[in-house]
Amino acid sequence: MSPSPPVPDAGDTSTSRGRGIRFAGVSKAFIAGNGARTSAVREVDLEIAEQQFVALIGPSGCGKSTLLRLADGLLEPDTGRIAIGDAPPRPGPAIGMVFQNFRLIPWRSVRDNVGFALEGRGLDGTELKQRVQAQLEQVGLAGWDDHYPAQLSGGMRQRVALARALIGRPGVLLMDEPFASLDAQTRELMQDDLLALWERQRPTVLFVTHSVDEALLLADRVIVMGGGAVLEDLPIHLPRPRRSTDARRAAEYSQLREHLWSRIRDLVLADPASAFFGRHVQADGEGG
């Protein structure tokens, strides 16, 4: 069905050149069982250049994951058009997707989890095995081939998920809060590794996060979403290469951080569904 990815020599773990992503007038609504309609994504126009690293941030339920699923081809837009390069997205190893909750197959070894992304594409066994091996080495999991997901730490599981997303040499990497469930130290290590990988291979990355700091550390551009729409599109000119330890020293950093924080705080406060913050604001009002 989907075209087989190009198959250069087995040890090569480079991604193919980053491809642009274009959303034009894209909307997506869900109809619940009781007939209620949720507009998850509304009229999104977005042009992401080749090899750009874009962070997507916004309150819970604002449509970030839906936008990623649309870009992966897992969902069809109701209106509008999406293009990866110059073709509509189609699920497959050429678009790498990393989910927040790892989504490893528990009864498969690390090797077979990573290899899963390329199975059924006419690669012979040895070749597939070599590619998996090389990919595991690249994400720092050499020698863990025969372990099962239950035997790995959270950080290692996320590395397996990353290896699975990368093994098809994707030109586009979609990441949905990939580090949200990791502890702080592991997260910083993973952020640095992701930055190093992106600097070397330059895939186009669309990265969903709830963390302003993570967005500012990683991205060339931060997109703020609210209520399914793009509310702000903020270029980040912090110098590269960046690493988790030194990014915060830049003078521009705290300004950007303050700006994004207030923006997101306003969005969350304005959300009637956010009962906790609703009460909080009320208490403040009474007190002042």
Binding site: L74, P91, M97, F99, R103, F116, A117, E119
Partner: peptide, 24 residues
């Protein structure tokens, strides 16, 4: 459903999803 969606996102066919995810 999470694993099924993951399998769809790597482009697995329906029969592969059934054999590799659903049955096991």
């Amino acid at each position: 459903p999470d694993l099924v969606e993951m399998a769809r996102s790597v482009g697995a066919s329906r029969s592969r999803i059934f054999k590799a995810i659903v049955l096991p």
